[in-house]
Design a protein around this nucleic acid. Structure first.
Length: 592
RNA sequence: GGUCCGGUAGCUCAGUUGAAUAGAGCAAUUGCCUUCUAAGCAAUAGGUCAUUGGUUUGAAUCCAAUCCGGAUCACCA
């Protein structure tokens, strides 16, 4: 149990015993004591003042006395300022805490409680390579999955590949028209980029044809419909749905090129999945749903035969669930997939990591699923995140204004390499070691950059300004870890098992206090589905250690006991930094 | 127009289950490397928390209205 919880419990008991006041634990406000006051944690008294009709000073004194007298192992002192009761926790408590936990690499994490969760993330289209926006999605999804695991859940990471549809056909038709049989193998190009180039080519050609048609007197609407290349793409989609063998073969071939490319990127950025769904297998799933919905009178049929649901009572609109030609729409197959996921994995919670542009869609999805009594409907959770935009506005792959994921990673790794070389601290590293370090630092900086911001906020990325390696960044935290490891190497770890001295300096205590909060932070990140909580914590912890490091020497401590205490403090800080960064998907180096 | 999200230092962001003098990083200025890694530390400066009103012992935080930015309301995904 965390110290804050213990104080909350003790306060509850005190209020009960002194004033027969029964109060819910969560209504007892415990804050960290501000640094300018004496104490570690603060009980805010204002809410009781009125009920108990006492002055803040009197109340504080009574509660303070009672708390300290009845919890002699926990508190050593208290003081009252205005309506705040500041409590000082015994040094022994902190030292014992450190003694007990400093070697545990899993400190702060919970054991598997069997709570099943599914996290769907990444979900790429197979007609173009990944861009910066996908990276935010991948990092978020992966990290949230790991955070939930650390908080005791049993997590299945999944990905739905959008491998069918008109967008794929566009790349296919352009390849047929312009490639002259070229392949990723023959050009040496990464498969996803290769296919993406033809997607761009399609749009170039499409635009050209529209202009020509407009030039010959057609209106824009007509031109868009009649452009031969677009008609060809639509015909191809039709042929694909009919299962025409040569089209299916081409589709498979080109998708495999893309998968080969994705594999490389996923491996590099550390995305992984236990289950992959392909839309080509799931897009027909909604059929039974429609039947079921009509039987349950959740859906209704219009005169033209199309099927709808009326969500106006829920503040939304009427929504189409099946076209009049009997084909299902996106929302319908999505519900079908939700049902299938539940049948296969029985998750209590099913998380969808999808951009905030689909807020409405996911709201509708959950609502329909609930109305249909689809099992697991209540567990649907949309982890909505803001778009990554350029200073000029949104990225558009059709217009080529995207920041490519592979390029971005390459650039970050290159910058990491340049910084490292300039500093010249690892000149004895082998080529392989250097390469690994550059990856660790470059990708670490990138992940930290994208994860340190609240997911729901949209963020602007300026390609002109490179991502920083100083301050509130991944490398800063990594650097702190490397620094600590250097001390531990020189001291050959921690030798003494003794609890050490009874006194703690301000910076030492601050650090232990921070470390103690780690489990609460993991819990918070899990309930909020928010990795930025951990990024902020990692930074604050590292910053605190650096302050301690410059002020006090570990190796040349005043006494052997002090040295042992500081070694433990250092080791635990390194462990918690590694653990926190691990949950963000960021590696920490031994040296840098 | 309806719905949802955002507006905090020059820039990027914490803080939003109400609580003590609103915090970081970057950028700016200044100091600190012959002692454990200076990718660091310490300090200075920088604020009408979009605006107005309300609730409260107490509001960046809650409520109302207004202004600004974005998303969405497709037989697209």
């Amino acid at each position: 149990m965390s110290i804050a919880e213990q104080i909350r419990k003790a306060s509850k008991k005190t209020l009960q015993e002194l004033y027969s006041l029964t109060i819910d634990e969560k209504d007892i406000q415990i804050n960290e004591t501000k640094p300018e006051f004496e104490g570690d944690y603060t009980l805010v008294l204002f809410s009781f003042i009125k009920q108990l009709k006492r002055s803040p000073e009197q109340l504080g004194k009574e509660i303070g006395d009672h708390l300290v007298n009845n919890n002699p192992d926990l508190f050593s002192a208290y003081n009252v300022i205005k309506g705040f009761l500041n409590l000082t926790v015994k040094n022994n408590y902190w030292i014992e805490f450190l003694q007990k936990n400093y070697v545990d690499p899993n400190f702060g994490k919970k054991k598997n409680t069997g709570n099943r969760v599914m996290v769907e993330y990444s979900s790429p289209n197979t007609n173009k390579p990944l861009h910066l926006g996908h990276l935010r999605n991948n990092f978020l999804g992966w990290s949230v999955a790991e955070i939930l695991k650390a908080n005791g859940s049993e997590v299945t990471k999944t990905c739905i590949v959008n491998d069918r549809g008109i967008h794929i056909c566009k790349s296919m038709i352009a390849w047929q028209l312009f490639a002259n049989g070229e392949t990723p193998g023959s050009t040496g190009k990464k498969g996803d980029h290769f296919v993406g180039d033809y997607y761009v080519k399609f749009n170039d050609e499409y635009k050209k044809q529209i202009d020509e048609l407009i030039g010959s007197g057609k209106t824009k609407d007509v031109a868009e419909k009649e452009a031969p290349i677009m008609k060809a793409a639509q015909q191809m989609l039709f042929d694909w749905e009919a299962g025409k063998p040569d089209i299916i073969a081409l589709w498979k071939k080109m998708n495999n090129w893309v998968y080969d490319g994705f594999d490389i990127t996923y491996k590099r950025i550390g995305s992984d999945f236990q289950k992959i769904y392909y839309e080509s297998n799931t897009y027909l799933l909604g059929k039974d749903i429609v039947k079921e919905g009509l039987e349950k009178n959740v859906f209704y049929k219009k005169e033209d035969g199309s099927v709808w649901i009326d969500l106006t009572a829920d503040g939304l609109d009427e929504k189409l669930v099946m076209r009049n030609d009997g084909t299902s729409v996106y929302i319908t197959s999505d519900i079908g997939l939700a049902e299938q996921k539940f049948n296969e994995y029985k998750p209590k919670e099913s998380i969808y990591v999808i951009g905030d542009e689909q807020n409405y869609h996911l709201k509708v999805l959950k609502l329909i699923a609930e109305k249909l009594d689809i099992p697991g409907a209540e567990g649907i959770y949309h982890l909505s995140y803001g778009m990554v935009e350029l200073p000029t506005g949104r990225m558009k792959s059709r217009e080529g204004t995207v920041v490519d994921a592979d390029d971005m990673v390459d650039e970050m790794v290159a910058i990491a390499g340049r910084h490292t070389e300039e500093l010249g601290k690892v000149k004895d590293f082998t080529e392989t070691e250097l390469k690994e370090l550059y990856d660790t630092l470059g990708i670490g900086a990138l992940k930290f950059f994208l994860l340190r911001v609240d997911p729901k906020k949209r963020m602007i990325f300026n390609p002109e300004e490179s991502i920083d390696f100083h301050g509130f960044t991944g490398p800063f935290v990594q650097y702190t870890h490397a620094r600590i490891k250097s001390i531990l190497r020189k001291e050959k770890g921690v030798r003494s098992q003794e609890s050490g001295v009874g006194s703690l300096l301000k910076l030492e205590k601050e650090l232990i206090l921070k470390l103690e909060q780690y489990s609460t932070i993991v819990e918070q990140a899990a309930t909020e589905h928010n990795p930025s909580v951990l990024a902020i914590y990692a930074f604050e912890l590292a910053k605190m250690f650096n302050a301690f490091y410059t002020e006090h020497s570990v190796m040349n401590a005043e006494s052997e006991e002090k040295k042992q205490l500081r070694l433990k403090l250092s080791e635990m800080t390194a462990n918690v930094i590694a653990s926190t960064m691990g949950l963000l998907g960021i590696k920490v180096p031994e040296r840098m």
